[in-house]
Design a protein around this nucleic acid. Structure first.
Lengths: 158, 158
DNA sequence: GTTGAAAAGTAGCCTGA
DNA sequence: TCAGGCTACTTTTCAAC
């Protein structure tokens, strides 16, 4: 049983989000054709989903290699004492190479996902991260190949 | 020195991609105002970037929690012998909970990033992955908090 | 880059559950 | 009352030049 919170998405909202996930530039009329709603009705729902914060924005999906990002890695950070997440966030946010960063359970404190032009560039990023005052040591794992990469999507109907 | 391959992005393409990354539903006229190009000129460049495969598509950025994805984890897979990436990809692709998966260097073979409704759901996903014929064992790391999450963007000018 | 026709976005108004 | 359809007006797209 899913705890139906107030503000939960109805099935039509979910369908709209799936369409937008597949093509964020689809017209409201085209989306409406799929979900059986008029274009203005779709627009009103999308506007409301933006207001509610469910929709955070729209982006383009790019080929990282074409942008010059040839190398990808997970850099795990072991941090000193009790470094606050705010401190970690502020530090990691300054790196344009960082794609994602998360605090995690286990012996590692932070997992940082990084894209670099090449191994030399990656090495520099690792060294800079390792030199951050709150970082005790790092452990890096190079990505060999991306098997799957998907946007977040509403869960399939249960 | 960057090896200027034929087909490399020029600075205007990069600026256009940065605009689209920030708002994929921006009008060509608005993008043109930023990059000092007419709307049709921007459209032609975007069309060409799609043809070249630099632009793979457009998506919506959603709040995972609002979709019912409350739990996130890295599940590391240790695989038997020489399992082909194709096999791994096919297996992992069947899980709607999988957001990303990569083969990696080191003792682990695959890192799978997963979103689940809750811990119980996550546990089920781990068990199903562990039961895949090519998986010897798994190791899971729960995400406590997302510090940074960014779309791929052209590198800043060097 | 400019032009103009066709398509899409958008606000207001009306209707029915 | 609230969400959706309809209509009319504006903005954007997009192909030809």
């Amino acid at each position: 049983m899913t705890p139906t919170r107030p503000g939960d998405l109805d099935p039509i909202d979910e369908a709209i989000l799936r369409e937008l996930a597949a093509d964020a530039r689809a017209s409201y009329a085209d989306i409406g054709a799929v979900v059986a709603l008029s274009a203005p009705a779709v627009k009103r729902r999308v506007d409301r989903l933006r207001e509610r914060g469910v929709v955070r924005g729209f982006t383009v999906l790019l080929d990282p290699a074409a942008l010059g990002w040839e190398t990808e890695a997970f850099i795990e950070l072991f941090c000193h004492g009790s470094t606050s997440p705010a401190t970690m966030r502020a530090a990691v946010d300054r790196y344009p190479e960082v794609v994602a960063a998360s605090t995690v359970t286990g012996d590692v404190d932070v997992v940082v996902q990084v894209r670099a032009r090449d191994m030399r560039h990656l090495e520099q990023v690792v060294e800079r991260l390792a030199a951050e005052p709150f970082v005790a040591r790092t452990r890096s794992t190079i990505v060999l190949s991306a098997l799957v990469r998907r946007p977040d999507v509403p869960p399939p109907a249960p």
